[in-house]
Computed example of a mutant assay.
Amino acid sequence: MNLTLDNPASVAAPFGDRFAHVARLDIGDGALLMLAGQVAVDDDGEVVAPGDAAAQAERIFEIVRGVLAAHGASFDDVLHIRTFMTDLGDLPAYGAVRRPLFPGTPPPASTTVEVGRLFLAGAVLEVEVTAVARSAAEH
Rank of each mutant, 00 (worst) to 15 (best):
Q38R: 15
M34E: 11
L32W: 14
L88C: 05
S74R: 12
H80N: 13
R82F: 07
A53Q: 01
I63A: 01
D43T: 14
R59K: 14
L88D: 01
G51D: 03
H71F: 07
F61L: 05
D87N: 15
L35P: 04
G51M: 07
A73E: 05
D44H: 13
A73Q: 06
G37I: 02
M85K: 01
D52S: 10
L35A: 01
F61M: 05
V64P: 02
D44Y: 06
G37Y: 03
F61N: 00
L35S: 04
A40Q: 11
A49S: 14
L33C: 12
H71K: 13
G66F: 02
I60M: 02
L33P: 12
D77R: 09
R82W: 07
V67A: 05
I63H: 02
Q56L: 03
A54C: 10
D43I: 11
A36D: 12
I63K: 06
I60L: 01
G51P: 12
A54W: 04
L35N: 03
A53F: 00
S74Y: 07
D87L: 06
G45M: 06
I81R: 13
G89R: 07
A54I: 06
V67G: 06
F84D: 10
E62Q: 11
V47P: 10
V47I: 14
G89V: 05
T83R: 13
E62G: 00
A49W: 05
R82M: 11
G45I: 07
F61E: 00
I81M: 12
D52N: 15
M34Y: 01
A54P: 12
G45L: 06
A31R: 06
L68H: 08
A55C: 07
V67F: 05
S74T: 15
I60R: 00
D76M: 10
G45S: 05
V41F: 04
A49G: 09
G45W: 04
A31V: 09
T86W: 08
E62M: 01
D77Q: 07
D76E: 15
A40E: 06
D44E: 13
G89D: 08
A36W: 03
D43H: 15
D76C: 09
A57H: 00
V39T: 12
S74Q: 04
D44I: 02
D87R: 12
R82D: 14
I60T: 02
A54D: 08
M34C: 13
R82P: 01
H71G: 04
D90H: 14
A55V: 08
F75N: 01
G89Y: 00
H80T: 14
A40M: 12
G89T: 10
H71D: 02
D43M: 11
Q56F: 03
V48M: 06
T86E: 03
G66I: 04
G37N: 04
M34F: 02
D90N: 13
V47F: 09
D76W: 12
R65P: 00
T86A: 06
T86C: 10
P50C: 07
L35C: 10
A57T: 01
P50R: 10
G89A: 14
F75E: 00
A49K: 10
T86S: 09
T83K: 08
R82V: 13
L91Q: 11
A49L: 08
A36C: 14
A49E: 05
A73R: 09
R65Q: 08
D52G: 08
